[in-house]
């Protein structure tokens, strides 16, 4: 039982990371109807943004690992990723706005490969250790909690839960209550009608890319706190899993992405704990294929049909 609870905690922590990245896939799909293949690599850039900004930001916040320091690194990574996301859209996807979806998909694959390989060139191909921006240690669970005290819960995991929760609440507020958020929803509902109603499509799309990329950047930092070894290819696998999460939840659906992320995280943890770690990736892809066959619109999404 304790073993099972432990797997749930680990799964939930990994799932939160997937959820943050899946949101970016889903939001971009919502407004542009295409899969931003390069999104996982923005997550990687978030980790490297942290790597390069951490020393000076930590110094500013008093030197050693600290909460304010970690918060500053997190914000810096989110900001840098937002800018990168907006740039990618402007340079690579915007010229293709009215082209077939396949052209855009191929471009996105190109962008993804470029970020990975240019990353290897710029940062070096070998894994680098991520600076300690906050001390990650196991929390003491009091003996009085009985059997539960055998559980391991780390500061990093707690931080993941907290930050993810906070970001999800913030995202919900932005999407529901701000003008741009409403414009985003309008655009994903009906792009033509939205632009006829005076929604500035370009601004909203930029905003969506910025928002999604910032979340991926946050995920990059949160991952690096727990697994402080980062490399330019770290985004491929996590990015694909997050994409599966977005599809599971129903691509284009924001709560769906969060739900899908957490479910995929839990599934992985259970596969690792109870089946065989080497089947983890194959099973996640199996889930993807199964959903697409059984319910392509995902758990919370609505089906689309082609007009004849």
């Amino acid at each position: 039982m304790i073993e099972f609870l432990q797997q749930l905690i680990n799964g939930l922590a990994q799932g939160s990371i997937y959820a943050l990245i899946a949101l970016g896939y889903t939001m971009v799909f919502g407004v542009l109807r295409f899969i931003n293949f390069a999104h996982g690599d923005v997550f990687m850039l978030g980790a490297f943004a942290g790597l390069y900004t951490a020393p000076s930001l930590l110094k500013l916040c008093g030197g050693g690992p600290s909460f304010p320091g970690a918060a500053a690194v997190l914000l810096a990574a989110m900001l840098i990723c937002a800018v990168i996301g907006i740039l990618i859209e402007k340079l690579c996807y915007r010229p293709l706005r009215d082209r077939p979806r396949l052209t855009v998909l191929i471009t996105a694959i190109g962008v993804s490969l470029f970020l990975e390989n240019a990353g290897q060139y710029a940062f070096g191909a070998d894994p680098q250790s991520f600076p300690e921006i906050i001390t990650d240690r196991a929390l003491e669970i009091p003996e009085s909690w009985g059997a539960l005290s055998a559980l391991t819960l780390t500061v990093g995991q707690l931080l993941v839960f907290g930050v993810t929760f906070f970001l999800l609440i913030g995202l919900r507020a932005i999407v529901r209550h701000t003008r741009t958020g409403m414009a985003m929803r309008a655009l994903s509902f009906n792009p033509v009608a939205a632009s006829l109603m005076g929604v500035n499509t370009d601004v909203v799309i930029s905003f969506t890319f910025g928002l999604g990329s910032a979340l991926a950047g946050a995920a990059g930092i949160l991952t690096s706190i727990q697994q402080p070894s980062i490399d330019p290819l770290m985004g491929i696998n996590i990015g694909l899993k997050a994409f599966v999460a977005a599809v599971l939840g129903g691509i284009g659906n924001i709560p769906g992405a969060a739900l899908g992320g957490i479910l995929i995280g839990l599934l992985e943890a259970l596969v690792v704990g109870y089946i065989n770690p080497s089947y983890r990736d194959a099973i996640v892809f199996g889930v993807l294929i199964l959903i697409l066959l059984v319910k392509p619109s995902g758990l919370l999404g609505k089906p689309e049909r082609e007009k004849v």
Partner: peptide, 28 residues
């Protein structure tokens, strides 16, 4: 056979997934 129900981007990702699955099976 699964590709019948999928188009464009989805199909691309599923075939990529199959590639990984085939690789995974061989690795094990």
């Amino acid at each position: 056979i699964p590709s019948l129900r999928l188009r464009g981007d989805y199909l691309a990702i599923v075939t990529l997934g199959f590639n990984e699955i085939i690789k995974g099976v061989i690795q094990n």
